[in-house]
Amino acid sequence: MDYPEIDRYASIDSPIHNFDPRAKIITFMVMIFSFVFLDSITKALVGLGIASLIYIIAKLPKAFVIHRLKVVFLFLFPLLIIMPLTVDGQAIAQYHSITITLEGFQYSSLVIIRALSAVTLALIMLGTTRFDITIKALYMLKVPGTLIQMLMFTYRYIFVIMDEFQRMWKAMESKGFKLKANRYGLSVLGNMIGMLIIKSYDRAQRVYQSMISKGYTGNPGTIVNFKLQAKDYAIALPMILIALFMHTYHLVL
């Protein structure tokens, strides 16, 4: 079973991996926001270059990010077709009343490049830290407890639910079921998802009872020890400066 383990490579040793999780979240968020607001293709490409550089420093396997970027690209690809047709501007090709504009092409490329660099950064941020540590860092950064707990339980139970789905799927296959895109196949699939929801509901009940029996009062209840060191400042500072510089260099230079 292929689990969606975002933190599979969290145990690699690299400067980004050793970066304090809280500082990492803040720094990367600043960078992501900075890169998303870049206003020209050249700048956006520089942003993507920086993101790739950080990615190389983080020593994450190539497949890790490319596999996920493919999915992102699939979502963004329609822009490349739609925007040149809909945005007004200089026509580069014309067929009867349909015009393809340069501006449309540029805008869509800009959006895609910015998105790819933002997602790359987010993947580095999540991929270089164990997910439970990321959650704890968010907790330390005073993200509301309810949100923290939702993340915690999602992370914990997504695997359990996937296992449950697998078991049901195998049970169905062992009775000769083959998924086909017809009405019967869809109705069986619908039943299965419904069953999964009911099972999850029951489990939520039992988990809650077990939480109450351990004295749960509504707090996430966890202990976190992070210490910011000089090296963390040494990484965070230049990265944040780069993020700011991308928007303010014309004032300085």
Binding site: F131, D132, I135, M152, F153, Y155, R156, Y157, V160, R203, R206, V207, Q209, S210, M211, S213, K214, G215, Y216, T217, N219, G221, T222, I223
Partner: peptide, 30 residues
């Protein structure tokens, strides 16, 4: 919770925190 501790049947219902440490620490923290 100091008086009576209950261990339920399905461990997946009781290990609800991200790591084993968090799970075992849950009661004492509370």
């Amino acid at each position: 919770i100091r008086k009576v501790g209950i261990v339920f049947q399905d461990p997946d219902d009781q290990l609800f925190m991200p790591t084993i440490f968090d799970d075992v620490a849950f009661g004492p923290i509370n």
